[in-house]
Amino acid sequence: MFILLFFLLPRLYFFYSPDCGHCYDILYGIIEDVKRGKKAEVLIYDITEPENYLLLEDLESRYRTSGEKIPIIFFRGRGLYGNDEILERLPGLLKEKPVLRRPNPEIVFLTRSGCPSCNRVGSMLRAITEEYPHVKIIFLDLATDSGAIMAEAISIWLEIPEKNRLISPTIFIDSTYLLKGEISYRKVKELIRKHPIDSTLLGRIPSQYLDRARTRIVSRFKKLTIIPVIIAGLIDGINPCAFAT
């Protein structure tokens, strides 16, 4: 199989607020120059939109950076905050020699042994890797302790509701997830195109979340096992004569 290398423009994330006057100086100045000169793929986000602010926080976590000023730019692994820093540092970053990069997102697949739906999704993911040879599929078997703990750690870190946790099949691509019934070839392709090419979810989860996941799973298991014991005790305590007629 021949592997095609595509020249991909580096992604530039630009975050601004509509009520920030000086943000527009950057937006209609250097950012417009970047777009016109095709120096980067520019993605523009209004941080007054909740989902965009969540993306901002996610990028700060990924880039290990933070700051107070706006507008904010994430580019080539750096975070730039405010007009002065952007105007000082962005031109140099734009001059860095571009590299050939391959689409290489990481898909985390929650599966379970003997799950028919999981088998079908697994087949779909194999088809995905035929179209996107550099996509990495990580299988987490929820029937194993290690798989369940890692899946729970992901759920805690992404603040996924309890009702949506440890469900098979589930697919994670970066911070986005698809549950059983939502997974389709088209949606997975859209997520591959949407998320950064260096997306690695598991590598960004702090170790303390694994400890929290172990505690949560043990606690959940105790709750599940104590209910049958209580029911058995109640049944054992029932006087059969009470049902006599």
Rank of each mutant, 00 (worst) to 15 (best):
K136A: 06
P91S: 02
P91F: 04
F139L: 14
N104A: 14
I138Y: 03
G79N: 06
E85K: 14
L87K: 15
V99M: 11
P116K: 13
E88C: 01
I72N: 10
V108F: 08
L80Q: 05
L80K: 09
K97C: 02
E106T: 12
I86P: 07
I70A: 04
N104T: 15
L93C: 05
G122M: 07
T129A: 05
N119H: 08
C115E: 06
K136D: 00
F109L: 08
D84R: 15
Y81V: 06
H134I: 09
P71E: 07
T111H: 07
P116Y: 12
E131M: 13
L125D: 00
V121A: 00
G77D: 06
E131F: 14
G82D: 11
R89Q: 11
I72M: 13
F75L: 12
V135Y: 08
E96L: 14
T129K: 15
R89M: 07
A127P: 01
R76Y: 09
L110N: 02
I72K: 15
P116T: 05
H134C: 10
E106F: 08
R126D: 01
N83M: 09
E85V: 11
H134G: 06
L142K: 08
I73W: 00
E85C: 05
G92P: 06
S123H: 06
L94Q: 05
E88T: 11
C118V: 03
G77E: 02
L94S: 05
P105K: 14
A143R: 11
P133N: 09
F75N: 06
L94M: 05
G122N: 13
F75W: 12
L90T: 10
P98T: 12
N83D: 08
C115G: 11
M124W: 04
M124K: 07
F75S: 06
C115K: 12
D84H: 11
S123L: 06
L93D: 00
D141C: 10
G82M: 10
T129M: 11
S117F: 14
N119P: 00
S117K: 14
Y132A: 01
F74T: 07
D141N: 15
R112A: 12
V99C: 08
P133L: 08
P133G: 09
P98A: 06
P133Q: 03
K136M: 09
I107F: 03
Y132C: 02
R101H: 10
I128K: 02
L140V: 07
V135P: 09
M124A: 04
F109D: 00
S117D: 05
I70M: 13
L125A: 09
S113W: 10
L142G: 01
T111A: 04
I128C: 05
L100F: 14
M124P: 07
E130T: 15
R78W: 05
E85G: 04
I73R: 01
V135D: 02
E130N: 10
R101A: 12
E96Y: 05
Y132V: 10
H134N: 14
K136L: 10
G92T: 04
L93E: 01
E96F: 07
G114D: 04
T129F: 05
H134W: 09
Y81I: 03
L140Q: 03
T111M: 12
Y132L: 02
F74M: 07
E85T: 10
P116D: 03
I128V: 15
R112K: 15
F74C: 04
R112I: 02
R89D: 00
R120H: 12
P103S: 15
L93N: 01
L90W: 11
I73M: 10
L140P: 11
Y81P: 01
I73Y: 03
